[in-house]
Amino acid sequence: MSDEIKTTALGRIGGAAAKAAAYAMMLLFTAMTLYPIFWLIMNSFKSTREFQVSQLAFPKEPTLSNYVEAWKMGDFGLLFPNSLIYTIGATVGIVFVSLLAGFAFAKIASRATKPIYNGFVIGILITAQSLMIPLFLEVNLLGIYNTRFAVLLVYIGTGLPIGVYLATEYIKAIPSALIESARIDGASFWRIFAKIIVPMSMPVAVTLSILNISNIWNEFALINILVSRTELKSLPLGIYKFSGSLSTDYGKQFAALTIGMVPMLLFYIVFRKQITRGVAAGAVKG
């Protein structure tokens, strides 16, 4: 499109230099990004012994035994379903509860909306990590330490500020006339929510889901203080077991790290466009 603009020879040379520099920079950072990941996966197929002798070469005798042992030692058979439960449960919870509140805030006029809604927006910048200690004390006080319920509750609660914000702003843009005519036809607000708001809010529901799925799947700081029983732990807690004394058993550690990384990599490869869009939308109003 801009080819005809660069008519002068000088412009063409400058453009070529800029392009070369741009490619060089992109290649450098792409290599820096991908190589450590590639290195990790490659070495996860070596025995710890082979790793200690040569870290940079391809595995001479690729083995899957690291994976078998890491899977057992990390109890990943237990943790995988837990991670799924937490991720799906909390994501569905966040999206549903946010859409509900968003509908009420956006389309049912009330004096209560302003203070409550502002309360949610303020929460966007309050990080739950800074509340780790009081949260830990609270779940103990309520007697829900070491329960899935506490994990889901905390995950939903921390996802709500951005969820309610995005849902409200989105639903505001749905024409009120639609809702009014449904009201005249005698539909209840709940019916309107189910029949009009939810179907029309699918784009923002997708954005919210995408944002939360990767956050919750990878979350460590909060679940670390909410559960201590293995049967309730999520994958990141299991992977963390491979630090410390196990960290020099490189083969198994790398297999564990790869197990922790691959599901999200696949998720990213499939939903890259949506993830990128979601991140941009979620961060617009920091």
Partner: peptide
């Protein structure tokens, strides 16, 4: 009734997880 039944789930979870710890 509709307003509050829609706002309260979010609001009460939010109070429990963010406001009460503060």
């Amino acid at each position: 009734r509709a307003y509050w039944s829609m706002v309260l789930p979010a609001f009460s979870i939010y109070l429990l997880v963010m406001a009460f710890p503060i």
